[in-house]
Design a protein around this nucleic acid. Structure first.
Lengths: 143, 143
DNA sequence: CAGGATCCCGCTAGATACTG
DNA sequence: CAGTATCTAGCGGGATCCTG
């Protein structure tokens, strides 16, 4: 199969990817993973649930994720999950019950990214007050 | 000044921010920092230049950043820098030369976020080949 | 040099309705 | 339950022109 060969070839090529360059594929990949819903989905599947102190990766059903990520539209959730699946960050498993059951889980690759995205969410929550204070100071000074 | 008092009060309140909740301010903050240009600007000011092995935070001029972040429009760069300044992540220093010189640098808060955003860029570059291979496999299987 | 202001196109993302 | 499909409004973001 030529596609597999091409993939292997590229993996061996050790190309220097640089997200600072406009044309570099890693720029697009960075754009993909720099997304609110991507971060939150990875956090959800990574077990960063506020209710569960034990941060173990878990498999979740579609509706579970939808419920945890309050305010996400059906479209965005499905769309984001599809792209994560395509990139090999999550697995999608369909169990032919009636009605059908679909569950998602992190792959090893997704888990490796989760280490970083978790930091993003944690940072936002930890420094929220500080940022709000900075905004007030800034707005007061420039008004 | 009442605004300062209010800010202090809020910082002491130890509110539980949770980005999973739609109404939580940390959700918006997460949205702000989950941005391609935010990540790249923090990486630039953090010293993650591919040419410089020593990763020391550096102050950069507007035009330096614009040059490093290939393809960024003036509007997006200015807009992003302004919001980062407002949130207290970067400082903006104007030196009244002719023509004027403006330099940007990370604050301590910005530096703390840089630790995470750097990981995002690094991850994208490190796993680019793997993701491309996953996409090929996926597209071949579903075509 | 480092922007501010304006125009305007395109695509994103929400809402809604339908299906296996 | 877990989607797909369609339609549309809104705004993100590029291009362009102007300024201290």
């Amino acid at each position: 199969m030529t596609t597999t060969k091409a993939a292997q070839k590229r993996a061996q090529a050790k190309v220097e990817y640089n997200a600072f360059l406009a044309g570099c594929p890693s720029r697009q990949l960075l754009d993909r993973i720099s997304d609110k819903w991507v971060v939150l989905i990875l956090c959800a599947l990574g077990g960063d649930n506020s209710a569960a102190p034990a941060d173990a990766p878990r498999t979740m059903r579609y509706s579970e994720i939808a419920q945890l990520l309050a305010g996400v539209s059906h479209k965005m959730l499905t769309q984001t999950l599809r792209s994560l699946e395509r990139d090999g960050l999550v697995t999608r498993t369909v169990t032919p019950t009636v009605p059908v059951t679909v569950s998602y889980a992190l792959t090893d690759l997704g888990l490796s990214l989760h280490h970083t995205t978790r930091g993003l969410r944690t940072w936002a929550q930890a420094h929220m007050a500080e940022v709000l204070a900075n905004r007030e100071n800034h707005d007061a000074r420039t008004s």
